[in-house]
Design a protein around this nucleic acid. Structure first.
Lengths: 139, 139
DNA sequence: ATAAACCCGGTACCTTGGTATAGAGTCAAC
DNA sequence: GTTGACTCTATACCAAGGTACCGGGTTTAT
């Protein structure tokens, strides 16, 4: 390991807070480029691999799937891609997140209504929650 | 088919709005009880299977997983289960949904901040969205 | 110099909620 | 009385995002 910034896969994994298998998986998926190898076949990563890993994890935290992240990464590489392209992806994701939030709000309201209709005592035979579940119902 | 209310799997599927395979899958998972069979092995369902199917679908719409639905169903069967037990499941689900909403709100806010930091023109080299993704960041 | 820790590739497995396919048997209608 | 629609079982496959195991080779530390 002559290169001072070269990381073995284990070190990259520890620094990046992921599992070694995850790194190999990302490489298979094309999210991480295939790194240099030692004579014996060990992967050797430069620092940019760590930044790439961070990119992936941050994007995941923001709700992007690995496929979408792949898309973001390849956009970034393609010359001619503009900031606007990236921003569009972000806006699309915002819209998707908003939709998911709305769906969950609807679910929450329906559940809350059911839970408050149930006075919470007695046998299940006449539980309004169970009853409601047995009948069609525009949630 | 002497029984007037007996349904073949195909009819049950159509009435319930699901795929035939889904019904068999629910049976394998234990969500639907194994029905009676004709001499030739065809499944024959009574009307309560349809109600059960509706229960499952409604509960899914409310965000319950199939395992949780299984739990609800077996709770309902157990004598001694009270309305309060059911209500507790509903409240737990409400809390989980609320947490998911909060997570998504956080994601949405982070994405919105990034998108508005990006003026949407120029090359990707200095796109604030991409930059933000490369650095650790308490979302 | 030898044990511990590391790494290799390949493959299989996990969860969730189904869907598809194959090859066979059965039922209803014309 | 045969064609077409239906059903049967068993097994495999899908997305998504990994995780685990295996049998071997390599490095590192003592």
């Amino acid at each position: 390991m002559k290169n001072p910034q070269a990381l073995t896969i284990g070190k990259l994994a520890r620094h990046g807070g992921v599992n070694i298998m995850t790194i190999r998986y990302y490489e298979r998926r094309g999210l991480l480029p295939a790194p240099a190898r030692t004579a014996s076949g060990y992967r050797l990563y430069a620092d940019d691999a760590l930044r790439r890993l961070q990119f992936i994890r941050q994007a995941q935290l923001l709700g992007f799937s690995l496929s979408e992240i792949q898309d973001l990464l390849s956009l970034r590489m393609q010359p001619g891609t503009t900031c606007a392209d990236i921003r569009m992806r972000a806006k699309e994701k915002i819209a998707a997140v908003e939709k998911k939030i709305e769906d969950l709000e609807r679910i929450k309201n329906a559940l809350t209504a059911l839970a408050s209709a149930c006075r919470g005592k007695g046998p299940t035979a006449d539980c309004p929650i169970l009853e409601a579940l047995e009948t069609e119902h525009s949630t």
